[in-house]
């Protein structure tokens, strides 16, 4: 069984938000309003977080895309009362919307705050409704949702492999929308357990780190810290 994981090279990330847009489009994320977003109500499975460092004029802006870390030991799935959120056999942290009672316990238990709640019935402008992704279900109001590593793409890729009577490739064949759309190629995706993949190689880089590593959650999203580019 592959262990799907992602690396994000912070040296390469330009903060362009292409991943954010791609994700919203791919996963039928409902629209929000500026006021609601300001109040922390918008849904965005991946967000480019910014950290401003230093004082004027010696300032620097750092970017860090934040999405579900797909932990090997997820604090959120432990506490779910109904099993609506769980770690599936492929190691992805999944959410079953029809099972979710909307208690938001998982959202509070997640130290990365990457679980999102449907505060209202989802809304789209009429024009957008036409282009909703048929592979991804629409979530009703009152349930929690989150990044699935574009699980529907994995299903499609696997079906294709079955049809062609071969193994699913450990990289390149199943790629989440954010990774696919990154213009700076800062993100890589594949099987972390297959040493031939780029993610496996990058995850062993001396620049590699995991968010809140000391909590022992064992994320499968691995960041490469800035350094090479600046040093060079």
């Amino acid at each position: 069984m592959p262990r799907w994981g992602m690396t994000i090279d912070l040296d390469k990330c330009t903060g362009c938000q292409a991943c954010v847009v791609a994700c919203k489009q791919e996963n039928n994320i409902p629209f929000s309003t500026p006021e609601e977003a300001e109040y922390g109500r918008e849904i965005s499975w991946i967000k480019v977080m910014t950290i401003a460092e230093g004082e004027y004029p010696d300032t620097k802006l750092r970017f860090m895309p934040m999405l579900c870390q797909h932990c090997d030991h997820p604090p959120s799935t432990k506490v779910c009362p109904t099993g609506a959120t769980y770690k599936n056999p492929e190691g992805l942290v999944a959410q079953i919307y029809p099972r979710c009672i909307g208690c938001r316990y998982c959202a509070n238990a997640c130290p990365y705050q990457v679980k999102y709640f449907n505060w209202y019935e989802p809304k789209w402008p009429e024009e957008i409704k036409e282009s909703l992704n048929p592979d991804v279900s629409i979530r009703p109001k009152g349930v929690v949702e989150k990044c699935t590593f574009c699980h529907h793409r994995l299903q499609k890729a696997r079906e294709q492999a079955v049809v062609e009577k071969r193994e699913l490739k450990s990289e390149g064949e199943y790629v989440p929308a954010c990774v696919q759309s990154c213009p700076a190629e800062a993100m890589s995706f594949g099987d972390l357990d297959d040493s031939k993949t780029e993610v496996a190689r990058l995850s062993k880089s001396t620049r590699a780190f995991k968010a809140l590593e000391d909590l022992g959650t064992e994320p499968k999203v691995i960041y490469l810290k800035e350094g090479e580019w600046r040093a060079g």
Partner: peptide, 25 residues
Amino acid sequence: VILDLGRPDRALYVLQYGRIQSPLI
């Protein structure tokens, strides 16, 4: 707790699908 649920219509899922590992159960 029922007021706090996003889906109060599914409140009885805690009996139907309850996971003993969850402190809420």
